[in-house]
Design a protein around this nucleic acid. Sequence first.
DNA 1: TCGAATTTGTGCGTATGTATC
DNA 2: GGATACATACGCACAAATTCG
Lengths: 251, 251
Amino acid sequence: MPEQPPYLRIADELRRRISEHEWVPGDRLPSRAQIGQEYGVGDNVVRRAQELLISQGVLEGRAGSGTYVAEPRQRVRVVRSSAREQPSGSPFRADMKAVGRQGDWESRTEAKVPAPAEIAARLGIAEGELCVRTAYEFLADGRPVQLSTSWEPYDLTAGTLVVLPEGGPHAGAGVVNRMAEIGITVSHAVEQPEPRQATAEEASLLGIQKGALVTHIRRTYYTDQGRPVETADIVVPAALCEIVYEIPISR
Amino acid sequence: MPEQPPYLRIADELRRRISEHEWVPGDRLPSRAQIGQEYGVGDNVVRRAQELLISQGVLEGRAGSGTYVAEPRQRVRVVRSSAREQPSGSPFRADMKAVGRQGDWESRTEAKVPAPAEIAARLGIAEGELCVRTAYEFLADGRPVQLSTSWEPYDLTAGTLVVLPEGGPHAGAGVVNRMAEIGITVSHAVEQPEPRQATAEEASLLGIQKGALVTHIRRTYYTDQGRPVETADIVVPAALCEIVYEIPISR
DNA sequence: TCGAATTTGTGCGTATGTATC
DNA sequence: GGATACATACGCACAAATTCG
């Protein structure tokens, strides 16, 4: 007879008490020792149960403070499609507006950064060749919901008005529009989404739990001649954003 | 002074000995007790170290047998774009051929299955309305690399030659082609990729480690009038497949 | 302001289960 | 069926973070 292990029984109990609104989102649960005593198990069994529910996004642990019922945050819908690239304005702001949130971002650009091996391969340039690197932090209502690091070959834009992605007259217009300004036509993007767990740094930047799941998207923009003009590493936390690809069917 | 915990030191040691080809892919490592004795730590410290490397795909644990150096399997490149839908032939077979592997699949169709709530919402029908459900298992060189469960409203195809996705004259032609046969034009697909961990069942079906990361894609096909005609849950294990979205840029 | 108490988080050990050979 | 090795569950000790008097 496969008897249910104690920690799963406690997890079910906690889940039940939450679903019955004994504790509502934002509430702090009793301490582990207290819960353990109540059910006649060790506090470590309670810990396992809570870890399970934390990994499922039901609970939220705060060191030194307590274990809380997670707030059901509305996720941001991030649309990724050809229609996303508008002649003007930012796709991110549009995404945010669609869910009634204010879209904003902070960026930090560094020019003449030597390309590491992986980036060089993606951009079709030699390792160590100079690039313009920009780190983004996308905010919804002031809270970070998405991270991105963008790389462009320095040669491509050197001496033009669009060298700096977030400076000059075309700041924030997006890669496609900026490249169009200097006569480069971006014809398609390739995105490679990969599931992984958030690093400690990403978790603290995004305000999510430590091992939380994210989608790491490697995106590269190409000209119609197949030349890469920009590549980016985008980190999308599952707890905060939902990703939507719209694919037209051509026949 | 941030002293490195024992289990991380062991992990580094193991990683080093693998990178120095002391053990090559497929080799079995010495038992945990043996490694522990060698470094003067408990076998449970070795276990933590091995768990870390297993989660990173470096090692592979086989219950009752031992811990092995993981074979660096070539991942299947799964392209998802508008160009994917061909007038004839299967997109999956094309993906497989591109990496020199034989593409194949097994399916199990059940007609007149009442739609659960989530599926009904995605198909825009009432909960409990009848559907045709087909479970797929996609194989590369005979080994499963991808799972999928597809749902179509029964009303849509009832009485036609294309009721069964994998039966009749249009078996395996894909949703778009089959719908075209009965005069329904599929104009676009929406895909929603979500990172999560494999369930025990999925892991055993796909031959991957238990908590391994997968991308769960919710895909829905729509007609040009915006009516959903098919929705599917696709499970793509990160260890076996890489997902590529190609996005045309329209200006 | 500071320090002690509380609470979560981490590391590690032991006992038991279970798969493989 | 027995021996071996990995997998799981649980307990204890300590560190880190927070809270509060």
